[in-house]
Write a protein that binds this DNA or RNA. Structure first.
Lengths: 243, 243
DNA sequence: GATGTTAAGAGTTATATAAGACCTTAACCA
DNA sequence: TGGTTAAGGTCTTATATAACTCTTAACATC
């Protein structure tokens, strides 16, 4: 790629930003990598350090890169902190957030339903991996999660790791499958607990549950995970901060 | 206030940012005002335009200021768009967001409950204004809202405007009371509809409702509104985008 | 000789400044 | 009425210097 400085063209720092994003999405730089210093990139691209810096700044605000003064700039990784901070919103009544432990109930392959296929942008009836698990908060089963993954991306999962899945899946996606979840869209509803829900959570059937349907996307915007969580909110709630 | 450039002191642009925020919170600049240009501020404060610019940039990211190239920089206002975009999260099943019309049921004074006082940081038993209203989505009553406001700030409301309240309250707070809502914290739960809820929404008692408890804060971080919404989510859902 | 402390240096990001390009508006003129 | 221009705002880019982090080597101490 060559940068254009012609009159009326896109600003340099935007072009550089796109170029840096491309290096991440293509896997040339992977999570945890140190990217070249601002000065190196500036020399390579024939612009000033400040211009590279502006591009990087926006990517840091997007959670694509992480800066550490005196150290360098890194491709952001999915550690537990990020999972908690960005993607987990359930807190207990004291407002404290703790990542729940998980117990996998099943992990099998099936054909995607119409809805699932549409939300994951798969062709009708494509194969998916379907995980079901419960999660404990404050030592009480509180959440039932159903996770749908395209088999084309996560094929290995069906075979090997059926029952010993780690607690933070996004870390696994990143390290084992080279897939980094970058953002998500969540749709929340109140639903009545089914018999199945109720027995797993120790509630009466018909009890109100908070249903969170999350579509998780990569940096490129491809949906790669569909996750439906049904939560008992008698001792916990979903916390959202509106800026 | 004087800026400090001594070695080891806080960066200039942060000091400028604080200074600009102060001018907004003190009411020296009010929503809609044009603030002095970057160059004017730079001259006034004896720094370069770029330094002022960096301060303003962060405030734009915080939704405190709004820039318009060629026009100037303005203090952000609470128009309908902002209300919709930042503070209203209910969309219909097609993903479309429409601000619901409101019907005020009651507007009266009372003493704050313990919880209300604590969440609004009022002394125990302080006077509050309590508004109850329903809101229609797609021509169907879908939300019941209970709004609690400190009477110390919103005294006038109790008297005059009892029944002809506008649809977007935050605009009213800003224009009539000089109070700008800057951010909010929302706590979501699934609850069972009471008889009262059910009759207002045309549902069976016990039907699951999504309860949203929102605390709205000023730029200074003072809580100024407590709002509890109970929503039927059979044809709508709460949309949250996680970046 | 082994170990802990200090100082210097190289490499990195962070801050501040300056200059010109670009955008918007309004006044002016043909 | 429509085009031109000037003024004044933000936006982009470049450059210089400060602040921070880590490594290494010199040195004192046990």
């Amino acid at each position: 790629m060559v940068l254009s400085t012609a009159k009326g063209s896109i600003p340099l720092y935007i072009q550089i930003k796109d170029l840096l994003v491309a290096r991440v999405t293509e896997g040339k730089w992977v999570p945890g990598d140190t990217i070249p210093s601002e000065i190196q990139l500036a020399r390579e691209l024939n612009v000033s350090q400040g211009t590279v810096r502006k591009a990087i700044t926006e990517l840091v605000e997007n959670n694509v890169l992480v800066r550490r003064q005196g150290r360098g700039t890194f491709v952001a990784t999915h550690d537990v902190d990020r999972a908690l901070f960005h993607f987990f919103h359930i807190v207990n009544d004291s407002g404290i957030k703790i990542l729940p432990e998980s117990k996998t109930l099943s992990c099998r392959k099936k054909r995607a339903s119409r809805q699932e296929a549409s939300k994951l942008k798969l062709s009708n009836g494509a194969q998916v991996v379907c995980i079901e698990r419960t999660r404990k908060l404050d030592n009480q089963p509180t959440i039932i999660e159903t996770i749908i993954l395209p088999q084309s991306l996560f094929g290995e999962l069906g075979k090997r790791q059926a029952r010993n899945l780690p607690n933070t899946l996004y870390e696994l996606y990143e390290t084992q499958f080279g897939i980094t979840i970058h953002r998500a869209e969540e749709q929340l509803r109140a639903v009545a607990a089914s018999e199945h829900d109720a027995s797993l959570l120790g509630l009466e059937p018909g009890a109100p549950l908070l249903e969170i349907e999350r579509t998780a996307l990569t940096l490129g915007g491809t949906p790669v995970e569909l996750r439906i969580s049904r939560c008992s909110t008698s001792k916990h709630y979903y916390q959202n901060t509106v800026l």
